[in-house]
C-alpha cells in the first residue's frame, strides 16, 4: 500500500446547528489524482479549507504528510499548493509580480517564477496585468502559484469552474500531467462527474457533509450491477409470475428490472412467452457512473 499523503479522522465542521462536514475520513495516496466529488453545498470547500487550516475543525483532525494540521500548520503549508474556490490574484499586478509575492513568502529561488510560468504556458504574458487575463489564464496563473516552490501536494478546489470547453480541456490536461511531470499528488474537488472521471485515479464522493464512497474509479464502476429490463403485459401478472420463480423484481414505470447475476435473459424471455405474456421489450442495462453516483448520494444530483 502506498504512502498516505492526506488522511483525515472524523473531520467535522459545524456552524451552529448546521453540520457542514460530518466525520469524514479521507485517504489520499502519494502520486495519485484524487477526485473529491459532490454536489454544490456538499461540504467539499469546507473540507478543503480545514485541510489548509483556513477553517478550524469542530471535531477530528487532518494529517498531511503525517503531520497534524492543528499542530504543525506551517510545516505542512510549505509543501502544499492550493487554489481555494476561485483563483486569487491581484489584478493591478502583472503575472510575475503576483508570483513574486508567493515566492517571497515561500523564500523560493527567483528561477522558480520562470519555471512555473513555463509549466502553465504563460511565459509570453508574464508582464501583462492580470486583470486583463482571460479566466483560463487566471486559472493557469493560480496553478502556477500553487506549483511555485516545488510543492508536493496540490489542493485544487473546482479548478475548471467557469471555464469554456477549451479551457476545461487545457486545465484538465495540465492537471493530468502533473503527477508524472513533477511527482506531485493532486486532490481536486469538482461537482462535475465527467471531470473527475476523465482526470482522477481515485475518487471520494461527499454529499450533505458525509463521505459516502472512497476508492478507485474501478471500484466505483464495480458497484454497477447489470439489470435485465423487461416490458411484459399484463405487467402485474408478469411481476407475480417472476417473483414466484424466486426472483427479486422491481417495477419502475411500465418496466420490470431484475438483477442479472447469472440469469439467462433468453431463458427468461422464453419462460414469459411460454406462460402467455406479451414481451414487447427485453434488454440488459448497465448503470453508468452518474446512475451509481445518484444511487450513492440518494438522488442528490450534481
Amino acid at each position: 500500500m502506498s504512502e498516505l499523503v492526506v488522511e483525515t479522522q472524523d473531520l467535522t465542521k459545524k456552524y451552529g446547528n448546521f453540520t457542514a462536514v460530518d466525520g469524514i475520513d479521507l485517504q489520499v495516496r502519494k502520486g495519485e489524482i484524487y477526485g473529491f466529488l459532490g454536489p454544490n453545498g456538499a461540504g467539499k470547500s469546507t473540507t478543503i479549507r480545514m485541510l489548509l487550516g483556513l477553517v478550524k475543525p469542530t471535531r477530528g483532525d487532518a494529517r498531511i504528510f503525517g503531520l497534524s494540521i492543528r499542530q504543525s500548520p506551517m510545516e505542512i503549508l510549505k509543501r502544499v499548493g492550493a487554489i481555494v474556490e476561485s483563483p486569487s490574484y491581484y489584478g493591478n499586478l502583472t503575472a510575475v509580480e503576483n508570483l513574486e509575492i508567493t515566492r517571497r513568502i515561500l523564500g523560493a529561488d527567483k528561477k522558480e517564477i520562470d519555471r512555473v510560468l513555463e509549466i502553465v504556458n504563460l511565459s509570453q504574458w508574464k508582464n501583462k496585468k492580470v486583470k486583463n487575463f482571460s479566466l483560463g489564464m487566471k486559472q493557469r496563473l493560480a496553478i502556477a502559484q500553487a506549483l511555485l516552490g516545488n510543492r508536493e501536494l496540490l489542493i485544487l478546489d473546482e479548478p475548471t469552474n467557469g471555464l469554456d470547453p477549451a479551457g476545461i480541456h487545457e486545465i484538465r490536461q495540465l492537471i493530468k500531467n502533473l503527477p508524472g511531470m513533477l511527482g506531485v499528488t493532486v486532490l481536486m474537488s469538482s461537482h462535475i462527474l465527467s471531470e473527475v472521471e476523465l482526470t482522477a485515479t481515485s475518487v471520494g464522493i461527499i454529499s450533505r457533509g458525509r463521505l459516502l464512497f472512497q476508492g478507485t474509479l474501478e471500484e466505483l464502476r464495480r458497484k454497477s450491477e447489470t439489470e435485465i429490463c423487461i416490458e411484459a403485459h399484463p405487467q402485474d401478472k408478469a411481476l407475480k409470475f417472476l417473483e414466484s420463480k424466486g426472483l427479486k423484481v422491481k417495477a419502475r414505470g411500465n418496466r420490470l428490472f431484475i438483477k442479472k447475476n447469472s440469469l439467462d435473459a433468453a431463458a427468461l424471455n422464453r419462460a414469459l412467452v411460454m406462460e402467455g405474456f406479451d414481451v414487447t421489450h427485453l434488454s440488459t442495462e448497465r448503470k453508468n457512473l452518474e446512475d451509481i453516483f445518484l444511487e450513492i448520494t440518494g438522488g442528490d444530483a450534481l
Binding site: 487550516g53 483556513l54 513568502i105
Partner: peptide, 9 residues
Amino acid sequence: RYTLSLPVG
C-alpha cells in the same frame, strides 16, 4: 484565503 493557505500565520 490565498495568503493564509501559504505558510503565513
